[in-house]
Nucleic acid binder design. Structure first.
Length: 739
DNA sequence: CTCTCCCT
């Protein structure tokens, strides 16, 4: 981009050299062209030897080196699955586990040997299977509930460990514990250059480092050589399973040119659009453009801005090489639009030699791989979730990305051809960024994590060995929350209720809500209509909470008017929970999913709604298997009742809100004399989200219960979903907590 | 009147 004075090029750098070993070489794109000459193949012997000799192998493998597909096959071919044991490979994401299993099955040519197991779906055959791809989360449940010592496995491969997801980190702790009892369980941790050593440190004793001049040499050796504990090692070279080693494998990344701004930019959305269009206009390189922004809203704005400029006949881009297509990409998008960037170019696009400009949120950083990207434009910011244990609020803050993140984004180009990355900040800014962002475990609500650790039989949660240590405040909040929910007793041991909650796949608060519903159903004094509806209703609420983007957000004044009309027949002034119920009543009483048109009219995301129904029926099946009986929570009994609507809706609404409160009583706010809500826990100010029923149509209430909080645009904290409640319920439902 | 992304 010689004609663009905005950027300068400090150096040409091969991002592949130090790129955090990106995503899998799988995701949406099958790279069959990589075929049989993968860089990992050159390391086959080295890897097999390492696992003969050591208990732990940290594998530094870059994007596209083939580690996820090849290592399980090397191990299988070398007899690691000859006994009744198998090779397990974990992934942070379902789609990765599933596509990898399919691909390895076809490479081996025998699908009875390879399969995946993720929540609600499994193709793995336990009698014939040798290689099992799973999600971290699935394996965690397996180790807490079914196979605590992971006896089914001879080798465990933990992939994408550099992402440090909550589940990965918990799993690392669990595996460390298992290896104390079963040191023969081999562990392969696939990670990035920067933290390879810290993984080894976590699993293996550190070598005593020499002081003084030798230090540098020792460091270097310990970093790349085996981690040998000489005091325990036999002379005969027998394997020492408490030791580990690091192997590094080259990637197939093409070089990526990094270009910086001289000064930080003031309006990054506009600058992103300008930059993308300038690249389109002036670059000789083929290949599409991927732009990183922070929110779906910004993405929409950028697409609109770019399309306006492009369609303007006087615009300079008309003089450019060819046409371009602007596409949005973010999670909240309807499925159809979300698929667009991954589809092969249409014949029109090919004929006119059109270039795609994809405006995306963080989803394209690790979760999905957009094909054919030659240019990346990086605004340098991202939305980061952050849990504040003092207030108990989840927050979502726009902040500068880490260096690792910037490298990862840059690396999204250069996968199929040499790439360029335009950073909308200066090189000096880059140097001042954090090397890595804080791991999720240090930024999140730990309630579920603590429950899982307790379920593993750990009496002192603080003694559980984790790679990244969470803050004392967050741990204390988690323990407080579990205690208040009745899952922990005074000695911080699991109660019967807590043990029951371990089996639930929902977060503890939601589990508590469902248990409250079951309890209400079983009580004699409960009115019969409530008995028939309450568990099904709470299942609907539980499932809705798990699925985001159920409603499509109106954008224009006109759309808001239509939205008001659309919700009028399902609206319940008590708030969002019961309103959601009424939406699903529409489906329940006909037993038919809403049509695409009905969904559009009602501003409902059809895919999300279908997902709620799926999650709900699975939760119902779980409750049924656990609590049995002839319960017909979602069946014909319910259909008759919600279809006829002969029930007392006030009675039903109160019953549901009581159950919600039984789980979410820590999330209660009281109306202050100034008209603002304040959380009972800590007295922090809250506003009702503008998309909440209570904001647009509700009546004011002394107390509300809210599902979650998020940062509002103009400062302050918003909450949603909300329902009105009576203060007196708190004394009945959580007397130990609110006196 | 404005919610990043995963997972059991």
């Amino acid at each position: 981009m010689a004609n663009d004075p905005g950027f300068w090029r400090p150096s040409s750098s091969d991002v592949g050299d130090d790129l955090l070993a990106g995503e899998n070489e799988n995701n949406f794109v099958l790279q069959s062209s990589l075929s049989n000459f993968l860089p990992i193949s050159a390391h086959r012997t080295q890897i097999l030897y390492a696992l003969e000799q050591y208990g732990v192998l940290v594998l530094v493998g870059e994007t596209g080196c083939g580690k996820s597909t090849q290592i399980p096959q090397f191990l299988y071919e070398n007899g690691w699955a000859d006994s009744s044991k198998c090779i397990i490979c974990t992934q942070p994401r379902r789609i990765a586990a599933m596509t990898l299993a399919d691909r390895v099955a076809s490479e081996i040519g025998d699908s009875s040997l390879v399969g995946y197991s993720v929540r609600f779906a499994s193709t793995f055959n336990p009698t014939t299977g040798k290689i099992r791809f799973v999600t971290d989360g699935w394996l965690l449940r397996e180790t807490t509930l079914a196979d605590p010592l992971l006896k089914q496995a001879s080798v465990l491969i933990i992939d994408e460990a550099h992402e440090r997801s909550l589940n990965t980190e918990l799993l690392l702790g669990v595996v460390k514990k298992i290896r104390r009892v079963r040191p023969e369980l081999r562990l392969v941790v696939c990670s990035a250059t920067l933290d390879a050593e810290s993984f080894l440190d976590f699993f293996c004793k550190k070598t005593t480092r020499k002081k003084g001049t030798d230090e540098a040499a020792t460091r270097k050796r310990s970093r790349w050589g085996p981690r040998v504990d000489t005091s325990e090692r036999d002379e005969g070279g027998k394997p020492c399973l408490t030791e580990g080693t690091i192997i590094s494998v080259d990637g197939r990344q093409h070089p990526v040119d990094i270009l910086y701004q001289k000064e930080p930019v003031s309006d990054y959305v506009k600058t992103v659009v300008d930059t993308a269009l300038q690249i389109h206009e002036s670059s000789d390189m083929d290949g599409d453009i991927l732009c990183f922004l922070t929110t779906g809203e910004e993405v929409d704005e950028a697409v609109e801005m770019a399309e306006t400029i492009v369609s303007n006949p006087n615009s300079r881009t008309r003089k450019g090489k060819g046409p371009c297509v602007c596409l949005p990409l973010y999670a909240g998008l309807p499925a159809n639009s979300q698929r667009q960037p991954f589809l092969p170019k249409s014949s029109d696009e090919v004929k006119s030699n059109s270039r795609r400009i994809i405006f995306s949120t963080n989803i394209a950083e690790t979760s999905v791989t957009v094909p054919n990207i030659a240019h990346v434009v990086d605004c340098g910011f991202a939305k980061m979730p952050y849990f504040d244990p003092d207030t108990g609020f989840d927050r979502l803050i726009t902040c500068a990305i880490s260096q690792a993140s910037a490298k990862q984004r840059a690396g999204r180009s250069g996968r199929v051809m040499p790439g360029k990355c335009y950073r909308l900040f200066s090189e000096k800014n880059f140097e001042s960024l954090q090397t890595e962002s804080a791991p999720e475990i240090q930024r999140t609500n730990l309630t579920s994590l603590i429950l899982t650790i307790k379920a593993l039989g750990v009496s002192n949660v603080l003694s559980f060995d984790l790679m990244s240590v969470p803050s004392v405040e967050a741990l204390a909040h988690g323990v407080e929350c579990l205690y208040a929910l009745g899952a922990l007793d005074d000695e911080a041991e699991l109660t019967e209720l807590g043990k029951e909650m371990v089996y639930f796949s929902t977060e503890p608060r939601v589990s508590r809500m469902l248990l409250a519903a079951l309890d209400m159903e079983s009580r004699e004094e409960t009115p019969s209509m409530v008995k028939r509806l309450i568990v099904g209703d709470c299942l609907t609420v539980a499932a809705s909470i798990q699925v985001r983007n159920l409603f499509i957000r109106p954008r224009t004044e006109n759309q808001w008017r239509k939205y008001d009309e659309a919700v009028s027949d399902i609206l319940d002034r008590s708030g969002d929970h019961v309103t959601m119920l009424h939406l699903f009543d529409l489906v329940d009483h006909t037993n038919k999913m809403l049509s695409g048109e009905e969904c559009r009219e009602r501003f409902v995301n059809r895919v999300a709604m279908q997902r709620v129904l799926d999650v709900r029926s699975r939760l119902a099946r779980f409750l049924h298997s656990r609590f049995g009986g002839g319960s017909n929570w979602l069946g014909t009994k319910r259909q008759e009742v919600v279809g006829s609507q002969t029930y007392d809706s006030e009675e039903r609404s109160e019953a549901v809100r009581r159950c919600v409160t039984a789980g979410f009583f820590m999330n209660v706010a009281k109306l202050g004399s100034d008209g603002q809500y304040y959380s009972l826990r800590g007295n922090f100010a809250l506003s009702i989200s503008s998309t909440s029923v209570l904001h647009r149509y509700g009546e004011s209430s002394d107390y509300i219960v809210f599902g979650g909080t998020y940062d509002a645009n103009r400062g302050g904290v918003d909450c949603k979903p909300n329902s009105t409640i009576c203060g007196s319920w708190l004394r009945q439902l959580a007397p130990h907590y609110w006196r």
